[in-house]
Simulated assay, not measured.
Amino acid sequence: MRVLVIHQNFPRQFRHVAKAWSERPGWQVVGMGRDTAPGLPELEKTGRLTLIRYKPHRQVHPNQHHYLRRMEDAVLHGQAVARVLLKLKARGFTPDVILAHPGWGETLNAKDVFPNTRLVHYAEWFYNAPAEGNGLDPHWQGADIGFDPEFPVSFDDRALIRAWNALNLLNLDNCDAAISPTHWQKAQHPKAYLDKITVAHEGIDTENLGPDPHAAIKLSSGTVLKAGDPVITYVARNLEPYRGFHQFMRALPAIQKEHKTCHTVIVGRYDVSYGRKPEGAKNWREKMLQEVGSELDPTRTHFLGKVPYEAYKRVLQVSKRHPRNEIPH
């Protein structure tokens, strides 16, 4: 069996499945990611997995219409990957199946190179905006925009995500099958494509993840927090309203006032993955500290930024209370 696994930041969601497949006798696993992808060095060194990198030959044109910037970026990614696939084909490698996250456009031309190869997409997301004119509160119908009345939806917002979905529709049409990790994520996609999508949760590594009564973290201030201490945690890739960061920060002064000894540990980059950057501040951390910082006890409020995986795991093992901000299942 020849399997090609594509993710611009390989391996990301495919880490465990790529590892498992590489251990199967007679299976050849080839990974593909951007020049910046971390890869799986432990498998590459043993020869169990081959990683091929690609890089778009240029950036999106600075004068491109902002509705189309994402599509142009996707075409550039798809073109770069197609060039690599053509070289693989010329060397005699034809995969039996391609598993890919198509969100950056990598597989736009995969079927043009390998028309008989089964293409399976990771259908993580389809953008939606709140509907209008149906008698319902439009603020609370959107999954991507309109989820919070604090951030009203403009016509430009709607037009933008409609254009973004052009790539998602092409991906849904191109693939032979697709996988969504949750029923809710699957339900965001158009009804015409739901029969293509299978719900398969990514799973939880229960042998690696679990409580540790001896877990502890040492903060830059010298404070040591241990499992069992009154520790509140908030973790996200980026600290932004899309992940409820603004609500968490506004609740924190009351929590600290009520509980005089609790510590709060906040993990995440100070950037934006989804939505807009704030006005009047470099990032949402700075914006929320402008709003509520004077009400917080700085000796009990700890921003760690981005941390290594093992440190992230210890933070959660130390945590006494952790608000959910992930996509609901």
Rank of each mutant, 00 (worst) to 15 (best):
E291A: 07
R300P: 03
A82N: 02
V60C: 09
H16C: 04
Q64M: 13
D297H: 02
V17K: 04
V30G: 07
P213D: 07
H302G: 03
P149N: 10
Q141S: 08
E44Y: 10
W164G: 00
K45L: 11
W125I: 01
W140A: 12
R118F: 00
F155V: 08
P211M: 04
V75C: 06
H201A: 14
F245Q: 15
A74I: 00
W140M: 15
T94C: 01
V292T: 02
H322F: 09
V84A: 08
F303M: 11
G244Q: 04
V113W: 08
P253I: 01
P25T: 07
Y54A: 03
L304H: 14
P253K: 08
T223F: 04
Y234C: 12
K87L: 07
L170H: 11
V272I: 12
V199M: 06
G210W: 05
Y270H: 14
K277Y: 13
L76M: 08
Y242C: 04
L86C: 03
F151W: 11
I197F: 01
R243P: 04
K260I: 10
R276D: 06
P41L: 02
E150F: 13
A200P: 09
L167Y: 03
R158G: 09
E23H: 02
D73A: 10
T233H: 04
K282R: 14
L108K: 07
N325T: 09
F14Q: 10
E132V: 07
L209A: 06
D212W: 02
A187M: 04
K191V: 07
N165G: 05
W125P: 01
E202F: 12
R118Q: 05
W164M: 03
A236E: 06
L136I: 10
R12I: 06
F126I: 00
L252W: 06
N128D: 13
E44M: 13
A159N: 14
V224G: 09
E207M: 01
R83T: 03
G105W: 01
M71Q: 09
M288K: 01
K218D: 15
